[in-house]
Design a binder for these strands. Structure first.
Length: 419
RNA sequence: GGAGGGCUCGCAUAGCGGCCGAGUGCACCGGUCUUGAAAACCGGCAAACGAAAGUUUCGUGGGUUCAAAUCCCACGCCCUCCGCCA
C-alpha cells in the first residue's frame, strides 16, 4: 500500500510508476478524487460526533422537562451521526480499495520494460567446457538414486517428486549450510507456520495478481504459503518495533507450495518448476532510509551462497513489468544450467520498501515518531533448483557428481556415487 | 469433538450504562535528598490521525441506547478439564 499522503502530493510519480509497470495509471486520479470525498466525510462526521458527545454529556445532568427537550435533540442528532458515520466508512473503504490496487512505486533505477528487458549486472564464474555430453538433472538424479519424478507423479501428480538417498542428503546439507551461514551473518533462524490466515496472505500481497498460484484450504479458511516470506513478514503484523533494534533479520526454513497455474508446458521435465519445495529465505525489517543498502547486503549473501556452491551465475536487474506488486526493485541470481545452455533463476531478492509494512501495519518507533518499516526478502537457497544446478554443473562423465567443498563437511563425502 | 473460565495502558489488576481514555500496584523516565547507591518524596508515563479544535481505540465485528469498557449477538484467541491423537 502506498502512503495516501504521498499519492496526494506526488500523483505524477505514482502515475509514471504505474505506467512503467504496464499497469493502469488512471487509478491515481480515482484515488485522489475518492480521497477528497473521504476527507470531507471524515470532517463532517467528526463535527457531528463532537456535538453529540457534548450533548450526551449534558443529558446526564439534566432532569424533568429540560431533560426531555435535550433527549429530543439528541435523538435527532444521533441519526445524523449515524448517517455521517456510514458515509465516512464507505468513503474510507472505497479509497482504501483503490489505493490497494496500486503497486509499489518503482525504484527509478529499475529498468523499464517486460520480462525480456532485464539488465545483466554481472557474470560470475565461467560456464564449464564439457569434454563429454553433459546429462541433465533428471538423468543424473536417476543414476544417483537422488530424484524420482516418476513415482512423484504417480503419488502426487505432475510437478511432484521424491528426493531419495543422495538427493535427500543433499537437501539436508544445503539447508544446514544455509542456516549456519545465516546465523553467522546475524539472522535469527525461524521455522514458521506454512498454513496461514487470510490477513497474512493479503497483507504480504499474495492475494492480488499472484492469487491463482496460491493453494487455499477452503474449509478452514487458511492458505498454504508459497514462500516463508509470508509468515516472516506477518510475524510482526500490527506491531510497533523499536527503532534501535533495526534491522531485524530472520532466516526462515519452510516448505513452499505453488499451484503453478498458467505455467502449463513450461519446465515440465524435472524439478525446476514444482508444486512443493523447501527453501531458506532471508527476511529483513529495516529502516526505510537503509533499505537500498540492505538490499545490496541480501544480494551479497545470495552471491556468497552461489560462490560457495562453485556455480557460474549472473545477476540481473529485473525489469519493471516483471516485478511483483510489492517490490520496488528486484535482483535475480541465475545459475548456469549446462543442458539448457542458459542461465536460470535460482534466487531472487526484492526491496518492498514500506509497501508491505503498511499493508501489514508494521511500524517502528524512534525519537522522531512512529513510521512504517521497510521490508526486504531474498532467497538464500531454494532446494530443487540448487540441486539441479549442482548436479548439472559438477557432473563427471560417468554420471557421478562432485560435492562442492563447502558442503563436504555436511555430507561427509566429496562425491555422489552411482547406485 | 464435549464442558467451563478469561481477553482493559509494558506487566499485574480495578472498573456502578453518563463523574472512565479509564483507577491502583509493579516496571520505566526525570527531579529532590545522598560522597555514591538504595530507600523515601515530587513529577511524568497507552496509541493513531490532525496545524489545532477535535476524533478514534478497553480481543474483532455487529446490535440496543441520547450515551457502551460496562447490556445483547456472532466470531477470534488464550487457559482448565474430558475424549481422540503424532
Amino acid at each position: 500500500m502506498i502512503d495516501l499522503k504521498f499519492i496526494r502530493e506526488n500523483p505524477d510519480v505514482v502515475k509514471s510508476s504505474q505506467k512503467g509497470r504496464g499497469e493502469d495509471e488512471s487509478i491515481v486520479d480515482q484515488v485522489i478524487a475518492s480521497d477528497e470525498i473521504r476527507r470531507d466525510a471524515i470532517e463532517m462526521f467528526e463535527k457531528l460526533r463532537a456535538q453529540q458527545n457534548t450533548l450526551s454529556k449534558s443529558v446526564g445532568g439534566a432532569t424533568g422537562e429540560e431533560k426531555a427537550a435535550l433527549l429530543e435533540n439528541a435523538k435527532a442528532l444521533a441519526n445524523s451521526v449515524k448517517e455521517a458515520d456510514t458515509k465516512r466508512a464507505e468513503a474510507e473503504d472505497h479509497t482504501k480499495q483503490l489505493v490497494m490496487k496500486l503497486s509499489n512505486i518503482l525504484d527509478p533505477a529499475a529498468p523499464i520494460g517486460g520480462e525480456a528487458d532485464f539488465v545483466v549486472l554481472e557474470h560470475i564464474g565461467t560456464p564449464r567446457e564439457f569434454d563429454f555430453e553433459p546429462k541433465d538433472h533428471v538423468e543424473l538424479g536417476k543414476l544417483l538414486g537422488a530424484i524420482d519424478t516418476e513415482r512423484g507423479a504417480k503419488v502426487a501428480g505432475s510437478r511432484s517428486y521424491y528426493l531419495t538417498g543422495s538427493g535427500a542428503l543433499l537437501e539436508f546439507a544445503l539447508v544446514n549450510y544455509a542456516i549456519s551461514m545465516a546465523v553467522k551473518a546475524g539472522f535469527v533462524p525461524v521455522i514458521p507456520p506454512v498454513l496461514v490466515n487470510p490477513a497474512a496472505m493479503e497483507g504480504t500481497g499474495f492475494l492480488g495478481q499472484a492469487a491463482e498460484n496460491v493453494y487455499r484450504i477452503e474449509k478452514d479458511d487458511v492458505y498454504l504459503v508459497g514462500t516463508s516470506e509470508v509468515p516472516l513478514a506477518a510475524m510482526h503484523m500490527d506491531e510497533v518495533l523499536s527503532g534501535d533494534k533495526l534491522p531485524m533479520r530472520y532466516a526462515g526454513y519452510s516448505s513452499c507450495f505453488r499451484r503453478e497455474a498458467g505455467s502449463y508446458g513450461k519446465d515440465t521435465r524435472g524439478i525446476i518448476r514444482v508444486h512443493q519445495f523447501d527453501k531458506v529465505e532471508m527476511f529483513s525489517f529495516c529502516h526505510p532510509d537503509q533499505a537500498k543498502e540492505e538490499h545490496a547486503r541480501i544480494l551479497q549473501w545470495e552471491k556468497d551462497f552461489l560462490d560457495a556452491m562453485e556455480i557460474p551465475y549472473r545477476v540481473i536487474d529485473v525489469a519493471s513489468g516483471d516485478l511483483g506488486s510489492s517490490a520496488n526493485r528486484k535482483f535475480d541470481c541465475e545459475a548456469w544450467i549446462p543442458t539448457q545452455n542458459a542461465y536460470r533463476e535460482v534466487t531472487s531478492t526484492s526491496n518492498c520498501t514500506e509497501f508491505q509494512a503498511r499493508r501489514l501495519n508494521i511500524r517502528y518507533k524512534d525519537g522522531e515518531g512512529t513510521k512504517a518499516v521497510a521490508t526486504l526478502n531474498g532467497t538464500l537457497v531454494a532446494i530443487p533448483r540448487m540441486i539441479v544446478a549442482i548436479l548439472e554443473n559438477h557432473q563427471n562423465s560417468d554420471g557421478t557428481v562432485n560435492v562442492p567443498k563447502a558442503l563436504q563437511p555436511f555430507l561427509g563425502k566429496n562425491r555422489f556415487e552411482l547406485v
